[in-house]
Every structure is written in structure tokens, then in C-alpha cells.
């Protein structure tokens, strides 16, 4: 029901924006970041784990499809599964040893992984084009339909967002999702009722990496040029900030966080110099004062306020 409504909103917005290239592109970018945020949110909000290298999985998706289509002239549709599988396998290798340990280790492991991937994107010139980037990535088309126009690509990206929302919603409300949420509340109790916590966390980490790679695929075929500067540690931190702003453990919150942090630099001209201070401040501030995330926290305060007022009225 909610999803049908959401789809309708997207279609109408797309129609309304016809020809407004700037806003079409902005909205498409919001879609790509929403994908990244919603995948990361599954890991952070539901499994209580953090990835500080999610931009690397985003990059793996982009560079895998970029390299296969540019160097080997593959069709994008053939490189898509490769990009997703590549990210999944690498996430498995990084996650396997770290997720058995306490929450700090996946953080440190992914932080290191992100930095190494950034070095690799920059240095492995024959494959990635090095610091100058990879040029000439083809745009998408399907059965003769050109998907690269502003509105069509917007629909492609938001179609993927909708699909991912749908999948996440099903996951959360299933045996698997319940186990994940249980781990978030009490890992000790979850394993005492028979949940293989390490396996569950590994699965969701791999899932979030695959979603990030999908976003990377969409990004690469949208801008048709990728360079290492997009996939930095700062980009990973920005994704964490989107999840934190949107509120952990909320699929729709990811949409909100991604929208907010995509629009903020557009409207804040001093942003560039103070970008890091702003992200750092947001992360610390929200976690200290509203650890449930900005949306959830504000809603909680509002509900408390309303309950209080209601209480006084009844008195």
C-alpha cells in the first residue's frame, strides 16, 4: 500500500519535472544516496554494526562495471551481476573474521578496507584509469529504449530504490529480520535463544555491500565517468551521517537522511570548507543527544510533549 503510493509519487514527480534537467539529476542523486543509506541502515539500525568503508563497496560496484564495459566492451547488463557478486564476496572476506568480535572490529576493519580500496582505485591505473578516472562508460539502454535521458534514468534509479525498500521491508518482518533486531537489543539473549549471531550479522553486511554496489553501478552508468575522489573515507562518513540523521532502524529515515545531506551542500555555499566540521559535528551531536537518530529522537520528544499536554488536559 505504502509502496504503491510511493511509486505514484515518484511517477508524478518525474512527470512534473519533465525537462528540468537540474532537478531531475538532483533527484536521481538523492535516489542513489538513498540506496546506499538504506543498505547501510540495515547493518547499523538492525544488526547494530557499523561499516566505515561503505564508499568502497559503492566504488567496487562502479569500477567493476566500469572496467568490464570500458576495457572488455561487456554489456552493462552482463557486468551488473559481476559488480554485485564482487562486492558480496569481498564483504564476506572482510566481515567473516571481524563480525565474530565486538562492535569495534567491523568498524576498524571496514575503515582500513575503505582506505585500501581508495589507494587501489588511484594506483591501479591499467584497470581504473588512476587519479584521472575511468572515461567512456556506456549509458544504459534496454530493448532499444534509451534509459539515459533525465527522466528515464530517474525512474530506473527510483525503481531500484523502491525494489530495495520492498526487499528490506520483507526482511525486517521475517524470521531473519526478527533475529537481527533481537541482536540489536541484546546479543547475549539472541544467542541464548538460538540465533547464530555471527552468521546473521555477516549476511546483513554482505547484503548492505551488495546494495551499495548496485548504487555504484547506477552511478557509473549515469555520469559515465568515475574517479577515486568519489569513493573516499569522507564519503563513507557521509553515508553514516545519512543513516544517523534519518534514524537508525527506519527504512524511510534513510530516504530522509539522504535527501537532507544531498540538498544541504547545494544550498550552503560555505559548505566546502566546513564540510568535515559539519559532518563531524552532526555525528557527535546526534549520537550524544538523540542516539535513536534525529527523526526518531524528534518524534519521541514530540510524543512526550503531546502526552504531557494530554495529561494536563485530562487533569
Amino acid at each position: 500500500m505504502v509502496f504503491t503510493l510511493f511509486a505514484a509519487v515518484i511517477i508524478c514527480t518525474g512527470a512534473a519535472l519533465e525537462g528540468d534537467y537540474y532537478h531531475e539529476q538532483l533527484l536521481t542523486f538523492i535516489g542513489i544516496f538513498t540506496l546506499l543509506a538504506v543498505g547501510l541502515n540495515m547493518l547499523m539500525g538492525y544488526a547494530g554494526q557499523i561499516s566505515l568503508g561503505h564508499a568502497a563497496f559503492y566504488g567496487i560496484g562502479a569500477y567493476t562495471t566500469g572496467a568490464l564495459t570500458v576495457h572488455l566492451q561487456w554489456s552493462p547488463w552482463a557486468s551488473l551481476p559481476c559488480a554485485l557478486i564482487m562486492a558480496g564476496v569481498i564483504a564476506y572476506i572482510v566481515g567473516k573474521p571481524t563480525l565474530k568480535l565486538s562492535g569495534y572490529y567491523l568498524g576498524m576493519g571496514t575503515l582500513g578496507f575503505g582506505m585500501i580500496m581508495h589507494v587501489l582505485f588511484r594506483e591501479w591505473t591499467t584497470i581504473t584509469g588512476g587519479p584521472n578516472g575511468l572515461v567512456g562508460i556506456p549509458s544504459l539502454s534496454l530493448w532499444g529504449l534509451d534509459l539515459s535521458t533525465g527522466r528515464n534514468y530517474l525512474y530506473v534509479v527510483w525503481g531500484c530504490v523502491l525494489l530495495t525498500f520492498f526487499i528490506c521491508d520483507r526482511l525486517v518482518n521475517s524470521r531473519v529480520g526478527r533475529a537481527l533486531r533481537a541482536i540489536h537489543y541484546s546479543e547475549q539473549a539472541a544467542s541464548a535463544v538460538g540465533v547464530d549471531t555471527a552468521k546473521a550479522k555477516l549476511q546483513v553486511f554482505v547484503f548492505s555491500a551488495v546494495v551499495a554496489a548496485l548504487a555504484g553501478f547506477l552511478y557509473a552508468h549515469m555520469v559515465m565517468f568515475i574517479s577515486p575522489g568519489t569513493f573516499t573515507f569522507l564519503a563513507s562518513v557521509k553515508l553514516v551521517a545519512m543513516v544517523v540523521i534519518g534514524g537508525m532502524a527506519s527504512i524511510w529515515g534513510a530516504l530522509l537522511g539522504a535527501t537532507f545531506l544531498t540538498l544541504l551542500p547545494e544550498h550552503l555555499s560555505v559548505f566546502a570548507d566546513y564540510e568535515m566540521i559539519i559532518y563531524g559535528g552532526i555525528l557527535m551531536g546526534v549520537m550524544i543527544f538523540l542516539p535513536q537518530g534525529l527523526t526518531r529522537g524528534v518524534l519521541d520528544i514530540y510524543e512526550k510533549f503531546r502526552a504531557k499536554r494530554k495529561g494536563t488536559v485530562e487533569d
Binding site: 547499523m44 557499523i50 566505515l52 562492535g103 559532518y279 563531524g280 549520537m287 550524544i288
Partner: peptide, 22 residues
């Protein structure tokens, strides 16, 4: 911090790290 879970502390120290770098 009111809820000292590892994930909360990781986010705060990462926030501090990027803040100090800025």
C-alpha cells in the same frame, strides 16, 4: 553518552575524528 553501545561510541569517535580533521 547515554547509551554506550560500541556502535554509538564508534560513531562519536569517528565524528570527532572527522571534526578534528576539519
Amino acid at each position: 553518552v547515554r547509551k554506550p553501545d560500541p556502535i554509538v561510541l564508534v560513531i562519536i569517535t569517528v565524528g570527532a575524528s572527522i571534526f578534528l580533521r576539519g
